[in-house]
Design a protein around this nucleic acid. Structure first.
Lengths: 201, 201
DNA sequence: CGCCGAGTTGAACTGAATCAAGAAACGTGG
DNA sequence: CCACGTTTCTTGATTCAGTTCAACTCGGCG
């Protein structure tokens, strides 16, 4: 069907596991959802989305990872990171149908299976389980963002870095320092100094 | 029925208008939702929620306003403001069923009609329209928070203040400076200076 | 009328940004 | 597979925006 991605079935299985954690879909609803999924492979530095486009897909990552970022005065500022086993999307643009403000870029060769906005709306409209899934996904994305927001309000940069180590260790392990810095809202030099301080202490 | 709040019907009408903006509920679904609503009146400085409690309600504000805030080292830090015609809740706690980290405090005499978590889950489980409403509300709360987050990532304090004037002028008009300052993540003195700068320019 | 909280203003301080230079790691092509 | 060039990271010196601390004004309220 889509021979250029051999792992399609494995990715669908991973998506099913991810979905089951939120809501137990009927086989019928699941099959409808799964049938909308199309594979896509991106090479390193390819864009899943660019500013100005309306985000048309939710993409479940089978392999690889993405970084989303704003471009401001030539400098790029990381919005977030997306890892395998989760969805990558500009949910803001996807939901609001407004042009996106971010790039979503593959940081290495990355494979996704994705569902188009129109397909998803059809699932929402025709199935109760799909509608529920959509609500639970929205709630979960909200929770993640709330936590991030709390850190910006309450914590200084060093504390935000420590919290990130706790909450998203994969970011620390796999992402270059300069991108982590902009995710934390600071300059690379500052994060380097924070790390140096922490080693000594 | 609830004689101590005479405006119950007016508040329900406002809630219906608010709801209609998101989704057109059937009369049946609407009546079910409306029937769960219970009125509550709070005096100035009363708490709708306190840290440690799990938020059990979504409260639609008929009159008045709330401020939610964290308490950190004795200083209170504003999370957000809730105005009449919108829901007030700690959605994070409400959704996750975890103890809240915030106070939600009435800034003046405030009246709400509210729906209990269990009632809402029952509506989600039994009606398609309710589930859809829940999804759309979650999406909208997410959008608002996204915007806030973007400002923290991209903008300096003065720019955040200007954006707040644009996006939520009611906050500027009705809220004391010191609370706006902590909402923006700065000290009251700094916001006072920002205002002084803007007047000159 | 006096008090108290809110806001303003000034001076000193501080932590992060900026600017700059060098070291280390990376990947790319020969 | 190595060598080169580029990017990433570190470290130091300086600058700067926002914080802190303090004093004073203003306006409302008891």
């Amino acid at each position: 069907m889509h021979p250029y991605i051999g792992q399609m079935d494995a990715y669908l299985a991973a998506l099913r596991a991810h979905t089951d954690r939120l809501v137990r879909l009927s086989d019928e609803d699941w099959n409808l959802y799964a049938s909308t999924m199309r594979p896509l492979r991106l090479k390193k530095k390819d864009f899943l989305l660019q500013p100005g486009e309306v985000c048309q897909y939710v993409s479940f990552i089978g392999r690889g990872l993405f970084r989303s970022y704003y471009l401001k005065d030539g400098a790029d500022i990381t919005q977030t990171f997306f890892f395998a086993g989760n969805y990558a999307t500009d949910y803001e643009s996807f939901v609001s149908r407004q042009p996106s403000a971010v790039y979503i870029e593959a940081m290495e060769e990355t494979e996704v299976i994705r569902c188009h906005y129109d397909d998803l709306q059809r699932i929402y409209a025709t199935t109760k389980g799909g509608e529920r899934l959509g609500r639970l996904i929205a709630e979960n994305i909200f929770l993640a963002l709330s936590l991030r927001n709390r850190h910006f309000l309450l914590d200084d940069p060093e504390t935000r870095y420590l919290a990130l180590m706790q909450e998203r260790p994969k970011v620390i392990e796999r992402i270059p320092l300069k991108y982590i810095a902009s995710y934390l809202g600071i300059q690379p030099e500052s994060l380097s100094r924070i790390r140096a301080r922490l080693v000594k202490a």
